[in-house]
Design a protein around this nucleic acid. Sequence first.
DNA 1: ATTCTCATGTAAGTCGTTACATGATTTG
DNA 2: CAAATCATGTAACGACTTACATGAGAAT
Lengths: 213, 213
Amino acid sequence: MSTPDQKLTSTSYAILGMVQMLGTCTTYELGKAMQGSFDYFWPRARSLIYAEVKRLGVLGLLEARKDSVGKRPRTTYSSTPAGKEALAAWLTTPPRTFTLEFEGLLRVYLAPFGTRDDLLQALQTVAGQADTMLHVGAAFKRSYLEGTSPFMDQIHVRALLNDFLVNYADLVRQWSERSIASVRGWEDLTPEGKLEAALGTFTNLPIQDSPSG
Amino acid sequence: MSTPDQKLTSTSYAILGMVQMLGTCTTYELGKAMQGSFDYFWPRARSLIYAEVKRLGVLGLLEARKDSVGKRPRTTYSSTPAGKEALAAWLTTPPRTFTLEFEGLLRVYLAPFGTRDDLLQALQTVAGQADTMLHVGAAFKRSYLEGTSPFMDQIHVRALLNDFLVNYADLVRQWSERSIASVRGWEDLTPEGKLEAALGTFTNLPIQDSPSG
DNA sequence: ATTCTCATGTAAGTCGTTACATGATTTG
DNA sequence: CAAATCATGTAACGACTTACATGAGAAT
């Protein structure tokens, strides 16, 4: 009963969950943990977290304890029964759709208004970004296989999560590499002589070009 | 020279590019085109486009012509030399990093605070969303293979684009399906008896758990 | 002792969304 | 001709970001 859910955002629940996971934490620790865990699928700026925990405290979904370090005040948060209830209630609702924001694809779409080299550089930047992500994934993999990760007891769900994330990074990496290879084979961005390969790419997409309607 | 780039966002350039692609268009047509093309990698609300073309008009990057339909006024836009220059200049800069916002993964991470069935439902929702995306991809594929797409002359770059998008949707679909299969095999969300499979998942990730360095 | 990094926030601003209002056009 | 849908915006609001300010602790 009650579930007093005012206007909470998904970020609110992300915070509620992370605090519950950590038990008790300062906002800084919370921020670090969120950055380390959520950055690739729910990225948020630090300052937002400071604002949000405050709000969740007022709503009674987090317990805020003031202490201080030196003569500087700070706040430490922990979960409340109401907070746990709210989180559990949210978890029963369907997730909003996943959205991608991929400027690199915008560059591909608009490539004909720039140069071939612009496109190549954009794709190389993307490849580098994917590579970084793969390194992070590799570190996670190592920490779980070696058993050095905190939250080893969560390994069964974290496996699902990393399964997605690593395959996702790998997809971006591979896509950017084969795209670079394609573009390298071009002299410019005009359509001339590029139809055949394009049709081949479409044909090989892992999908049925099945009945409309 | 000049490149008077005030504070333009990536969305500004997306608009600049789409208008240049269309030649001349009403804001409504522009919005439709953007929705149809960018929705999966650069989603933006209609109303933002109305606001943005107006601004781009003031900046001289788009030409705005007022006409009317019945006694209702409307504005039609087309590209200007300055606009084309600005777009070309932007295309030389490196793209910002791709970001994902995937509430489904948040649900996976926080799953232990809810029930097994919550998690299953969330994953099924995701599978459905990926499926929808695959249908859109299939339609694109068909239109290009049949040669019925407008902008057939862009097929070489669109092939790169759809290569990513379809494989991405396919990844989400397949991931959600194998995750559902995993969770179906569980009786609850406790760690008991789930270690082996999790370790296997990590081991099989397409990545080296290579030297830290 | 100074400097650099860690830690704890606040303030201002913006990009973008949801909701609304209303005219025009098609459809039943 | 009434209802639904297409078309053309505006207004209000909010979630999130960037930039700033500053204390504490570590390093040199």
